[in-house]
């Protein structure tokens, strides 16, 4: 009983943190969407991540960078293109094709050739996903002063994570009469303040999925959200697997130690 009170007290202290994730202004709270990767047993729906990659490349990448991800991440453990034929993701032929599909370009400004110019070459798996704009100023200039945020961590960088991203992408609607929108702004109740610079990026049939799935707005929104959830947390599956092993081990260890404790204290008045 005492132990329970101790644990409850501790958890109450930790529970404060739930309220510390501050309110997101006046925004609508997003609905809880069902995600395959949610919960202690959740794994990423690999096909959804693959489709989401396609959505990112064909729709989002024109404005949003993915600076922290390299092509090889797609082929690493837990990635959408993981393949047992290539345990080393840098040898993964499909990953290499994706890297090369961006054509010859400057991948690393610090790679200088003998003429003193940055080297222009085909991509390799080790290269990062290229950014659409060279720097923040050019990005803002091309987007009416607004900066399209980098998407590498977007699911972790927003309260309600994947639910928020999905709600945002599917939540565009006509502005209410009392909404003040500056030119170039759009109404989205899920965005703090309601006025977002991004035009609705998705619409039914916008692209053709490689696996033939029907590309409705909701489908693309869901797939790209799952892709971004993976991008924010590529080790999630390994983390949960290890978590179960650790908990099972500690549980057994706890039982053994408890029995040892009872044994030690068996004949002692306390």
């Amino acid at each position: 009983m005492k132990m329970f009170r101790i644990i409850a007290a501790g958890l109450a202290a930790l529970g404060l943190s739930a309220t510390a994730s501050a309110l997101e202004g006046d925004a609508h709270a997003p609905h809880a969407h069902h995600w395959h990767h949610a919960g202690p047993f959740g794994t990423f729906d690999r096909h959804a991540v693959q489709r989401g990659l396609q959505v990112y490349q064909e729709v989002c990448a024109s404005c949003h960078s993915l600076n922290l991800l390299s092509f090889r991440n797609l082929g690493e453990r837990g990635g959408p293109l993981e393949d047992e034929r290539w345990p080393n993701a840098n040898d993964n032929l499909i990953v290499m094709q994706i890297a090369e599909s961006y054509g010859e370009r400057v991948w690393d400004r610090d790679e200088i050739n003998d003429d003193g110019d940055p080297v222009s070459r085909l991509g390799i798996p080790a290269d990062r996903f290229p950014a659409p704009f060279e720097n923040e100023q050019i990005a803002r200039g091309s987007n009416g002063g607004a900066l399209p945020p980098d998407l590498s961590l977007i699911v972790k960088a927003r309260s309600h994570g994947a639910d928020y991203i999905y709600a945002l992408l599917t939540g565009y609607e006509d502005a209410p009469h009392d909404a003040h929108l500056a030119p170039g702004q759009h109404y989205n109740a899920y965005f703090p303040g309601g006025a977002i610079a991004m035009a609705p990026p998705l619409s039914d049939g916008l692209l053709e999925y490689a696996d033939g799935t029907e590309a409705t707005l909701e489908q693309m929104a869901e797939d790209v959200t799952v892709f971004l959830a993976w991008a924010s947390d590529p080790h999630m599956e390994a983390r949960k697997q290890m978590g179960w092993m650790v908990l099972i081990y500690l549980f057994i260890f706890a039982i053994l130690t408890y029995l040892a404790y009872r044994q030690v204290w068996a004949n002692v008045k306390h």
């Binding site: 260890f253 053994l256 029995l259 040892a260 068996a266 004949n267 002692v268």
Partner: peptide
């Protein structure tokens, strides 16, 4: 705990098991 009255093998087992873990 007095040594007499306890089976040493059972007592030692749990300590070895816990220590081993």
């Amino acid at each position: 705990p007095g040594v007499d009255g306890q089976e040493p093998s059972r007592r030692d087992f749990i300590y070895i098991a816990a220590g081993g873990a």
